[in-house]
């Protein structure tokens, strides 16, 4: 319940960041335009990676519910790795953009773009840390509550991060400014 409330609250957080981006997406006084630097095939692959991590997360949850802890550790690891891949891709993408002349302070578009995607990236990173910690806790048998419930809660968070990306991918990348 607390997690759902938190996610409801996060809707307003990302809503605000997305709105800021939408308001400022066209305001490019200097620097490259998004259409010149976005690498849609590359970002599509990372989007796909993140989407599939949602699937592996579901598998982690169901196997924990079946008390098949070996499986659940495996799927948690895979999910974390996919998440890490996504973050890695984002780091690569940011560096590429930066080299092409789009710094954080170049223009309003870039500031709001980096703020939005960066915030999302931090959420994914926090998710990855939680997944790995969870995996460690399960293998050391150090958990202090209902294990299936904990996995499920972190799963909710993970899926939420995924749906935020579903929106960002469409609004930011696929619909040109």
């Amino acid at each position: 319940m607390a997690m759902w409330l938190f996610l409801g609250s996060e809707c307003l957080l990302f809503g605000g960041l997305i709105s800021t981006y939408m308001l400022y997406r066209g305001r490019i006084t200097q620097g490259p335009r998004p259409s010149q630097i976005f690498d849609i095939p590359f970002t599509s692959v990372s989007s796909f990676v993140l989407l599939m991590s949602s699937l592996t997360m579901v598998l982690a949850v169901t196997s924990t519910q079946r008390r098949d802890y070996e499986r659940s550790k495996l799927w948690l690891t895979v999910t974390a790795l996919l998440g890490a891949t996504f973050v890695g891709g984002q780091v690569y993408e940011f560096t590429a953009f930066y080299n092409e002349g789009l710094g954080f302070t170049t223009n309003l578009f870039s500031s709001s773009f980096y703020t939005l995607t960066g915030f999302h990236g931090v959420h994914v990173t926090v998710g990855v840390i939680m997944l790995m910690a969870l995996r460690g806790i399960i293998s050391k048998n150090r958990d202090t509550g209902d294990r299936a419930e904990v996995v499920e809660l972190i799963g909710l968070y993970w899926h939420f991060v995924d749906i935020v990306w579903i929106i960002i991918f469409t609004l930011v990348y696929l619909i040109p400014a």
Binding site: L12, L13, G16, L17, T20, R27, L108
Partner: peptide, 27 residues
């Protein structure tokens, strides 16, 4: 969360040089 967004934007403007509220940059 809404004020969080506002505060984050302001912090980024003041500490990291963004221009979210800078009219000269078209904000």
């Amino acid at each position: 969360p809404v004020i969080t967004v506002a505060l984050v934007l302001l912090t980024f403007q003041r500490s990291f040089g963004a221009t979210f509220f800078d009219v000269a940059q078209g904000a």
